[in-house]
Design a protein around this nucleic acid. Structure first.
Length: 241
DNA sequence: GCGACAG
DNA sequence: ATCTTGTCGC
């Protein structure tokens, strides 16, 4: 039983996305991003919201900061929150962003020296219906470089989960292999990445903010011990050390 | 009616 | 997102 969305809400959200979309920076802006081994990168963050079975209103907002390249936990923040917005495909950011931003603000206020230099977001960035997914939204509002990593393919802008897609996946032989997710317009919205040798199912990485697609993919691979990048996995997997 | 639908 | 254990395979 889900109440129908308020009148005009989607329209309002669409215009908000269109406005913020103009502020996304799709190129590398940091020195470490140009380095072959990301020298200069010392802290990578991950954010996520976790729910429990029968409750889609209360959730746990988490932010972790890991050292790079060791991927050891440097900081961890968990906060129970009450969600105000409904989940509507394409508008995930309106549901989650406020709480992820709060977590970043808390860190900035308490230990600004631990602020991550890049944030991994559980969801898409430019690979989105209007090229403005959660990772872009959080990136623009926080001003931090962000990378979107989704675990499932969103069929959008001419990208289909068909036979061709399946064969492209089959062609990913080892960790680090990838292929572009190209829109009907010809623009590369993101890449499917085999994140580790062991996982045959790829993850879908796209630009959030202040990073290029290629750097986003290369960085994502370098932060993967398993299929899901460690910064995100540390927030959502109870068994993660 | 059927498939899609980030989290 | 979450519901869910074991099981088969390398």
């Amino acid at each position: 039983m889900s109440a129908p969305p308020a009148e005009g809400l989607v329209e309002q959200w669409e215009s908000e996305q269109a406005r913020l979309r103009q502020q996304v920076v799709e190129e590398d802006t940091e020195d470490w991003q140009r380095s072959p081994d990301f020298s200069g990168l010392e802290r990578v963050g991950g954010v996520d919201l976790s729910f429990i079975k029968g409750d889609d209103v209360n959730a746990c907002a988490q932010l972790v900061v890991l050292s790079y390249p060791d991927l050891e936990v440097m900081y961890e923040d968990s906060q129970m929150v009450t969600l105000m917005a409904p989940y509507i495909a394409g508008f995930l950011a309106f549901r989650e962003t406020p709480f992820l931003l709060d977590a970043l603000k808390r860190l900035e206020g308490n230990q600004p020296e631990l602020l991550p230099q890049v944030v991994f977001v559980d969801g898409n960035g430019l690979f989105h219906y209007r090229e403005f997914g959660l990772a872009c939204h959080l990136g623009v509002l926080s001003g931090l470089p962000c990378v979107g990593v989704a675990k499932n393919l969103l069929q959008v802008q001419g990208v289909y989960k068909g036979e061709e897609h399946q064969s492209q996946i089959a062609a990913l032989q080892k960790g680090g292999d990838s292929f572009p997710l190209t829109a009907a317009s010809g623009k590369v919205l993101g890449k499917a990445l085999r994140s580790s040798d062991k996982s045959s199912k790829p993850v879908y990485a796209s630009v959030g903010h202040k990073i290029s697609v290629d750097t986003a993919v290369r960085l994502t691979h370098s932060c993967c011990r398993y299929r899901v990048p460690e910064p995100i996995r540390q927030t959502s997997d109870p068994k993660a050390e």
